[in-house]
Amino acid sequence: MTTFKLIINGKTLKGEITIEAVDAAEKEKIFKQYANDNGIDGEWTYDDATKTFTVTE
């Protein structure tokens, strides 16, 4: 398992979430669903070196 981080830079929601997953593709799906469930629609980036997804509205 690898630890992945999501950084949220939303208009109404900001924060960080850290979760373990098998791979980045699995985690991306979970993070995007979390963002969608919380009304966050923005630009996504991924840094493989730090295993960090960022979504910015």
Rank of each mutant, 00 (worst) to 15 (best):
D48E: 11
D37P: 02
N38L: 15
E26D: 14
G39A: 08
E57K: 04
N36A: 14
K14M: 12
D41A: 11
V55H: 02
F31R: 01
D23K: 06
N9C: 15
L6T: 00
D37F: 05
T54C: 13
E28K: 04
K27G: 15
D48M: 04
G39K: 04
E20Q: 12
V22A: 11
M1C: 15
K5Q: 06
K27N: 12
F4Q: 06
Y46E: 00
N38C: 14
K11G: 06
K5L: 11
E16I: 14
I8R: 00
N36R: 14
T12C: 15
W44K: 00
E16T: 13
T50C: 07
I17F: 13
N38E: 03
Q33N: 05
T2D: 06
K29A: 10
A25D: 10
V55E: 03
V55L: 11
T54Q: 03
N38I: 13
Y46S: 01
A21M: 13
Y34H: 01
I19K: 00
N36K: 14
W44L: 02
T50P: 00
T18N: 05
T56Y: 09
I19T: 02
T54S: 05
E28V: 09
T12M: 11
E43T: 10
T18K: 06
T12D: 06
K32N: 07
A49E: 07
T45D: 04
Q33R: 07
K11P: 05
T45N: 04
D37H: 05
N38Y: 14
A21V: 14
Y46G: 00
T50N: 05
T56K: 05
I7L: 03
V55D: 02
D41R: 11
W44H: 00
Y46L: 00
F31G: 02
E16H: 08
D48G: 03
I30W: 14
T2Y: 15
G42D: 01
I30H: 05
G15W: 15
D48Q: 05
I17G: 01
T54E: 03
Y34T: 01
K11F: 11
K51L: 05
G39M: 05
E28G: 06
G15T: 15
N38M: 14
G10Y: 12
D37N: 04
L6Q: 00
E28D: 08
E57D: 09
T52R: 01
V55P: 01
V55S: 02
G10I: 14
N9M: 09
T52P: 00
T2R: 06
I30Y: 11
G15Y: 15
F4G: 08
T3H: 08
E28F: 15
V55M: 06
I17T: 03
Y46P: 00
I19A: 03
T12F: 12
W44S: 00
M1N: 11
A25V: 09
D23T: 11
K11H: 10
I30N: 02
A35M: 15
Y34C: 13
Y34V: 05
E20R: 11
Q33L: 04
Y34N: 01
D37I: 08
Y34I: 13
I30C: 15
T56A: 04
E57S: 10
A25H: 08
Q33H: 05
T45C: 08
F4K: 05
E20A: 11
A21I: 14
F31A: 06
I8C: 15
T2W: 14
F53R: 00
T52M: 03
I30R: 02
T18C: 15
N36M: 15
V22I: 09
D47M: 02
A21L: 14
T56P: 02
A24Y: 11
V22F: 13
E43W: 11
T50M: 03
G39L: 07
F53D: 02
M1T: 12
K32C: 15
K51D: 07
T54W: 11
G39F: 06
D41M: 11
I8H: 02
K51P: 02
E28T: 04
T18H: 09
W44E: 00
G15R: 14
K32L: 13
Y46V: 01
T12K: 08
I19Q: 02
K5A: 03
A24N: 14
T18I: 12
A49D: 08
V22C: 11
K27E: 09
D48Y: 06
M1A: 07
T50E: 03
I17N: 00
I8L: 07
K5N: 06
T3Q: 08
F31E: 00
G15V: 15
D23Y: 10
V55F: 13
K11C: 15
T52C: 05
T2G: 05
E16W: 13
F53H: 01
L6W: 09
T52F: 04
E26P: 04
T2N: 06
G15F: 15
T50G: 01
N9P: 00
E43R: 05
G15D: 09
T52S: 03
K29C: 13
F53A: 05
L13F: 14
L6R: 00
L13H: 10
K27T: 15
T56S: 06
E43G: 04
T52Q: 03
A35I: 13
Q33T: 04
D41K: 13
A49R: 05
E16N: 05
T45I: 06
D47L: 00
G42S: 02
E28C: 15
F4V: 13
K5D: 12
V55Y: 10
A49G: 04
G10M: 13
L13C: 15
T3W: 12
T52A: 02
Y46R: 00
G42I: 10
N38K: 09
A24F: 12
G39S: 05
V22D: 10
L13S: 06
A21F: 14
I30E: 03
K27W: 15
T3E: 07
E43S: 07
A21P: 01
K14I: 13
T18M: 08
K5V: 12
K29I: 10
D23I: 06
E16Y: 13
L6G: 01
N38S: 08
D47W: 02
T3V: 10
I19V: 06
I17P: 00
E28L: 14
T2I: 14
F31C: 10
E20C: 14
K29E: 10
F4I: 15
F53E: 01
L6Y: 11
I30D: 03
E57C: 15
I8T: 00
